[in-house]
C-alpha cells in the first residue's frame, strides 16, 4: 500500500507580472519519501519550494498539507522547514544558539534546549564543544551540518532543501549526500530536495521530479527514469538507446554517470546533433577523454 499523501499541489501556477514562473503544477508528495526536484537553472524549482514553505502564494491552484489547503498560511505557521542554498545561519549567534533557535521560539526551557542541541550535534557528527563556537568560524561542511541540525530541531513534518550542497567541493558533497540519505532513514521524515544535478538526485532520492520551463516534465522513481522515452530525459541521461536497468538504484546511477551504458557509442553526426540540441536547451555538455558527455554538474570539479 502506498504511503499517504502529505503534500499535494493541484494546478498550481505562479506569475510575476506577465512572466509565468510555474505553470499548472500537479504533484503529490508522500509521507516519509525522499523526493528530489531536478531541473536546469530558471526551470522554477526555487519558486516552487518558496510556495511550498509559504514564502510566496500561488497565483492559481491549491496546495494541500495533510488534506487542508495552506495557500494563505504564512511560513512561520507551517510545520515545514527549509535548508537554504546560502544556509541562512544567524551570523551573530553561536552554533548552539542557532540550533536552539526554533526551540526558543516555542518556549522550550533552557535545559531541554541544551540537551536537544547536544543530541543533534551528535546526530550530525559535530563535536559537542562546538556548542559555544561562533557559527561563522565553522567550515563549509560544518555550517551545512549546523543548518541541518537547526532544521531538525524545528522537528518539521516536511524538510525542504534548496540546493544546499551546490557551493561545496566534490568530495564534501559526496560525503554529505551519503549523510543526508542516512539522516532521512534515521529520522523517517519527508525530504524534498532541489538540485540541478541529476547525479545528486539519483544517489539520494526515492522519487525524482524533472522540471522544465516552469512545469513538471516527468515524475518517477530512479528506475522509471532509467528508461528515457522523451527527448528531455534523453538529454539529461545522455543520448542513445534507452538504458536497461536490471536492479534498482545502483545500476541506474552508474548508467547516468557514464552517459552511454550498455549501448553503442552514437555516430559522430548524432553526437554533434545532440550537442547542438543540448546547447539550445541550455544544457552544457562536457566531453571527457573518451568522448563521452556528462552534464556539467557531474564533473568532479563541477
Amino acid at each position: 500500500m502506498a504511503p499517504p499523501v502529505v503534500l499535494r499541489l493541484e494546478n498550481v501556477t505562479k506569475r510575476f507580472g506577465l512572466f509565468t514562473a510555474l505553470h499548472d503544477i500537479n504533484l503529490d508528495i508522500y509521507d516519509g519519501e525522499f523526493l528530489t526536484i531536478v531541473g536546469p537553472s530558471g526551470s522554477g524549482k526555487t519558486t516552487m519550494i518558496r510556495l511550498l514553505v509559504g514564502m510566496d502564494e500561488p497565483s492559481e491552484g491549491l496546495i494541500y498539507l495533510d488534506g487542508k489547503v495552506i495557500n494563505r498560511v504564512p511560513a512561520n505557521k507551517r510545520p515545514t522547514c527549509m535548508v537554504f542554498q546560502s544556509l541562512a545561519l544567524f551570523p551573530h549567534r553561536t552554533v548552539g544558539q542557532n540550533i536552539e533557535f526554533p526551540l526558543k521560539i516555542r518556549g522550550v526551557d533552557e535545559r531541554r534546549r541544551r540537551a536537544r542541541a547536544n543530541e543533534l550535534l551528535d546526530l550530525l557528527h559535530l563535536p559537542r564543544d562546538y556548542y559555544g563556537k561562533g557559527v561563522m568560524q565553522c567550515s563549509g561542511g560544518e555550517r551545512q551540518r549546523v543548518a541541518l541540525a537547526r532544521a531538525l530541531a524545528f522537528d518539521p513534518e516536511i524538510l525542504f532543501f534548496d540546493e544546499p550542497l551546490s557551493a561545496l567541493d566534490y568530495r564534501l558533497r559526496k560525503a554529505l549526500e551519503k549523510e543526508l540519505k542516512q539522516l532521512h532513514r534515521q529520522t523517517g521524515k519527508t525530504f524534498v530536495y532541489i538540485t540541478h544535478s541529476l547525479e545528486e538526485a539519483m544517489v539520494m532520492s526515492d522519487r525524482i521530479a524533472i522540471m522544465r520551463t516552469g512545469s513538471i516534465a516527468q515524475v518517477g522513481t530512479r528506475r522509471n527514469l532509467c528508461q528515457p522515452e522523451k527527448p528531455l530525459r534523453r538529454r539529461i541521461h545522455g543520448r542513445g538507446q534507452p538504458v536497461r536497468c536490471r536492479g534498482p538504484g545502483r545500476r541506474a546511477v552508474s548508467g547516468a554517470r557514464r552517459g552511454y551504458v550498455g549501448q553503442r557509442r552514437p555516430s559522430r553526426y548524432r553526437r554533434r546533433r545532440a550537442r547542438h540540441l543540448d546547447g539550445a536547451a541550455g544544457i552544457r555538455p562536457f566531453p571527457d577523454s573518451r568522448g563521452c558527455r556528462r552534464l556539467r554538474s557531474q564533473r568532479p570539479d563541477g
Binding site: A88, F90, F101, P102, R106, F154
Partner: peptide, 14 residues
C-alpha cells in the same frame, strides 16, 4: 541578509 530573516520566519519566529 533577507534570507536570514526568511529562515527565522520559516523556523516559526513572528
Amino acid at each position: 541578509p533577507e534570507e536570514v530573516r526568511q529562515a527565522a520566519s520559516d523556523l516559526g519566529a513572528s
